[in-house]
Nucleic acid binder design. Structure first.
Lengths: 221, 221
DNA sequence: CAAATTCGAGAGCACTGCTCTTGACCGACG
DNA sequence: CGTCGGTCAAGAGCAGTGCTCTCGAATTTG
């Protein structure tokens, strides 16, 4: 079971990729609920039992798709995180989240909707899942972060968090960015899942407004 | 097919309720994904095909559960919406959302997670789904709502919304409450789905902080 | 009382995830 | 170079699913 040396290993790596690609294709069109191992195998011209040599269960395949989705979103945001001012960077990054979500609805639903496999997210997904909030934190650190008052219990959690997370933000600013983070994804999720229909949907205008408001809130001009 | 007159109609109404109750029980323990018509029927001592006399499909059963969940959450919030000041009412209502969500994880995931049946939420669910935001709007109206500047396109949407929604809030205040609404549910969803694990989980402290911040933001002392 | 409607039960279809066995193929080791 | 162990795809099969259809029995309606 070495790295990609022998022909067999190469073939295995390629097939693993092809399976994921086909699964992602079916996910994009039919949704995670409809994703079927047998249909993926059929589409690849093999029999369903052969697929189990590459993924031990359907949930493992879905988990692989989840990790890929987190990374795809992370890449999209990283690529959008450009601009002369922190404000531009913030707006561009937030917009990238929304646009990626709109362009990959089912993948977004997979990672930010109800967790389908089991109660807890697999450990492998937490790393890639932290990329976007870390980017937001970095942008906020480049601004003028305000350190408002924070209750003691929360302050302890935030201090512990500040020790793990790169940018040296004070607890108050950290709390504000976390709040903005939850707002951003709450808003995007609401738009995607039809919760805004009777109110501010189409949500583009409201999205821009909210992003600006939160930028101001976290101390970005 | 009259109202509950004959013995048959009574039995039908009762069985419909029993089916929903059993389905909700299985939903609570196993999650929406695992909810099985056949298991529900089995648990009720009948055969699966008999169940189709009461719900034409699994999705229709789930839709009924969704409506009930919206109403249960709405009831919980309505009951919690008490307090001497708008600030108390706001805090109590927001806390009721979180506590209901934590006590009914799978039901919450059903209504605020990825929509399982089809792309669009059935029309019957939008009414009950507006109860919580309407409550929040009412509380904000009892405070001192600030009318900040709002971009033109959004202003048009908000003015249209203001004509439909009871409390006479100016557009700027309306926008702020919508933002707070998305933040609240984004935060609760994040906590429930494990997104806050490496940062501010357990989230009780952060939740209180965010609720207070948003109260201030919508003009509640 | 008779006719019409509603109902539960059962069989059956197409599908799912997953397991196990059977041969074929490949790669390393003597 | 040959053998031998590991890897692989294929197929059958199991238990489960949503859903449809048919068939008697029960009940409401005329």
């Amino acid at each position: 079971m070495g790295a990609g040396r022998t022909a067999r290993d190469k073939a295995r790596a390629e097939l693993t990729r092809e399976i994921k690609d086909e699964a992602r294709r079916q996910l994009a069109t039919d949704g995670a609920h409809q994703l079927s191992l047998r249909a993926v195998a059929r589409s690849l011209g093999m029999v369903s039992s052969a697929l189990y040599r590459y993924f031990p269960s359907r949930d493992e395949l879905v988990t692989a798709l989840i990790i890929d989705a987190y990374n795809a979103l992370g890449d999209a945001v990283d690529q959008a995180d450009r601009g002369a001012t922190p404000g531009e960077r913030w707006r561009n990054s937030c917009t990238a989240v929304r646009e990626w979500a709109l362009a990959h609805r089912h993948e977004y639903a997979l990672i930010y909707g109800s967790p389908i496999p089991g109660y807890q997210a697999p450990q492998d997904t937490v790393g890639p899942g932290t990329r976007v909030p870390l980017t937001l934190l970095g942008i906020a650190a480049a601004g003028d972060p305000p350190d408002g008052p924070v209750p003691d219990g929360l302050r302890a959690q935030l201090d512990a968090l500040a020790g793990v997370v790169p940018p040296g933000l004070p607890a108050g600013a950290l709390a504000r960015v976390v709040l903005a983070w939850t707002q951003l994804f709450g808003m995007v999720g609401f738009e995607l899942f039809g919760q805004l229909v009777g109110s501010v949907d189409p949500a583009e205008e409201f999205f821009g407004f909210a992003v600006d408001q939160m930028a101001e809130y976290v101390g970005i001009a």
